[in-house]
Design a protein around this nucleic acid. Sequence first.
DNA 1: CCAATAGATGATACACTATAACATGACAAC
DNA 2: GTTGTCATGTTATAGTGTATCATCTATTGG
Lengths: 174, 174
Amino acid sequence: MIHYNMTTPSPDDPGAPLGFAKHDHHACVTDALSVAEARCAEEGLRLTPVRRKVLEILLREHRALGAYAILDLLREEGFGSQPPVAYRALDFLSENGFVHRIERLNAFVACTHADEAHSPAFMICRLCDTVAEAQSAPARGALGAAAKAAGFQIEKTVVEAEGLCPACVDKAAS
Amino acid sequence: MIHYNMTTPSPDDPGAPLGFAKHDHHACVTDALSVAEARCAEEGLRLTPVRRKVLEILLREHRALGAYAILDLLREEGFGSQPPVAYRALDFLSENGFVHRIERLNAFVACTHADEAHSPAFMICRLCDTVAEAQSAPARGALGAAAKAAGFQIEKTVVEAEGLCPACVDKAAS
DNA sequence: CCAATAGATGATACACTATAACATGACAAC
DNA sequence: GTTGTCATGTTATAGTGTATCATCTATTGG
């Protein structure tokens, strides 16, 4: 089962790409922050100012950012600017499913449906680095069978597809 | 379709783990080198001394090695010891399917069936870092459907499962 | 045979990514 | 108010990867 992530398109905000579809980005950011706050309150997690700001940055940018790019933005907003500041916030956020690490890019993206438990799959454009998140369950299929046969216990899976996003396909064709 | 990698077990060589099964490691190394040589000859690829040595190192070690670990071994055998030496050889080998990069570990493993075209999936033990290679075709399933729906052209996929290998499961249980 | 070319290697320097270690601060529990 | 815990600040350093330019070597064409 896979669920392609796509929110309501909106003509009044050209915005940054979510998945590869346009959408009401301002609402998308504030909604996601609210969801995160609610879940932290529920579960006794501490969404401190730095952590909240990092999540906000990633939601706002809506693409994969390296830790040092995040760090630059944190500095601009008056937060600490040494690497551990960013890495610690990112650790918290990814441990709790608010952001995902993109191994292929050594970078991070905000999760676009942080409320559900999920094992994400990503589509990464090799030209513009845009990242779209999809849902998948690789451990249930062929890989799961191989692991079972081998006696390997899967705890987590990384699925990342690299290729061309719709916009870059068009550009390449022209 | 998935094919778990397992070669002939042999009691006379305790050896390093291949996948997670014991096997005749000496034969496994020389066989793989022969296959690589044959394919390079066929396709006009140049399996130069450094490239061959890097492949041999990865086959011999039979686990994921970082570029700098490879570099140390190259130095011991009298080759150049600056990072580009290792990275260039690894680029050549991975472009041609003789080794794979493990994104999760920033490391490289020799391919265990370099003769077939394939899109590999890996099982990585988080305790001992052993890596087993399986075959999968993620782009044909759910992910492929999501990509198609999104208009994303997949060129390459990375599938890496992290968990516990059989040996470490046993250790953890005791 | 020699020159021209292209691919591979050597070597220096640097950029980017990540963590160890230790000090400080904020806040709750006892 | 002391203790414990968790988060943050700060310095330093470790680990991973490339850009650049010079040199070498093997063709290939003259």
